[in-house]
Design a protein around this nucleic acid. Structure first.
Lengths: 209, 209
DNA sequence: AGGCCGATGTCAGTCACTGACAAGGAGAGG
DNA sequence: CCTCTCCTTGTCAGTGACTGACATCGGCCT
């Protein structure tokens, strides 16, 4: 009904954000998004594996930029320093995209299903970072922990920046980094030799991670 | 077809794990789970808001135990010490539940949709911990970062323990804690005064958080 | 022209999930 | 013992996400 190939995907993404903002995620059907983009529902699902995914696409660019920065970081930097250096290296990239990210994030934050998907993406990002760190010789465990810890700061900073707006991403990021590091400066607490404390009731279907 | 009230929920959970292990999550319909539990599909959805949720139920117990431990932790403990003390306090609880948790985790790990839901639960747990820390006077930002960081260690330890089996959860947890703390003992790296590094291409639909 | 290919439309079908309404059983009160 | 009520479940009909199979159309290569 409209243009040909490459345009459809982008039109679908735009239409999706618009509609989600107008009627909410649940109040919007995939068919409606497709219609506004000038294609059929089937075409929607050819471009995106599911309705949520239409909002998550730029991730690849971020991953590439971050891993690139990690790869060519000075060899003497520790994992955390490497990570935060990488985060700093993408602040301008993210700041340029604020016009797109802001409305998108509003929709995501307002929709549990989308928030869930976002967590998935963040975890994937964490794993990619952990992999990149391992490429620098960092053992698996510290790499994984550093990646998650770093991502927590980065994600928190980005979130805060998208809401507050002004202080700038770099500022929020720096704040998060300082806060994180200061948390580990307390009494190292000799890790008391395992004193079990609880020993409670049963619990049915299990529940942990 | 079967028993009355309280039993149905549990039967549904058991039937779900069994079937997921036999035919996989995607190869199992909600109706089939219900049938094996001796109820109708509608009843399934009366007990669980969606098909995934049937595997996530014990979380509440964990949250309660952890927050309880945080609440009555010695006032002089810092956020991280408080958290790891809490984690240690629930190890026996988790270890007792291994017979249930193990198969459940296998299913979850094998199913993207379930893994996604699990991340959601873990985030909820993180937020609960952050809240509990704030109750101790810890400011919001450090509370949030500590909670995420701690959860990363806890989750990682639990995962490793469920796979390896033997070393014991406490052991894995202690290892994670040591690793985490040692990561922050490197050169504090004076946080170089913001040197932007990249400034790359555009990117369409945004992608951050 | 002939033929290949990628993007799209069409159709039919499965399954997750929901609202509305009726039925059955257990306990409280008469 | 009867009845009213509450709680749990069954039944039915419907929406919407997602999929597989097949036909079509517009380039592009030869």
């Amino acid at each position: 009904m409209d243009k040909p190939g490459p345009g459809a995907r982008v039109r679908l993404q735009q239409a999706a954000v618009e509609l989600f903002r107008e009627r909410g995620y649940d109040g919007t059907t995939a068919a409606e998004i497709a219609a506004r983009a000038g294609v059929t529902e089937r075409t929607f699902f050819r471009h995106f594996p599911d309705k949520r995914e239409v909002l998550f696409d730029g991730q690849a660019v971020l991953v590439d930029a971050l891993t690139a920065s990690i790869v060519d970081a000075p060899a003497e930097l520790g994992p955390l320093d490497t990570l935060f250096r990488a985060f700093r290296s993408v602040t301008t990239l993210l700041e340029d995209n604020r016009p797109f990210s802001k409305p998108r994030q509003e929709v995501i934050s307002a929709t549990p299903a989308l928030h869930e998907r976002e967590l998935s993406k963040l975890e994937a990002l964490s794993e990619a970072l952990a992999l990149a760190l391992q490429g620098r010789g960092v053992p698996a465990l510290p790499a994984a922990l550093a990646a998650r810890t770093g991502m927590a700061s980065f994600a928190h900073a980005t979130l805060a920046w998208l809401e507050d707006g002004e202080p700038g991403l770099s500022h929020h990021l720096e704040l998060a980094e300082r806060t994180l590091r200061s948390m580990f400066r307390g009494r190292p607490s000799p890790v008391p030799t395992l004193d079990v404390v609880v020993g409670t009731t049963e619990f049915p279907s299990g529940g942990q991670e």
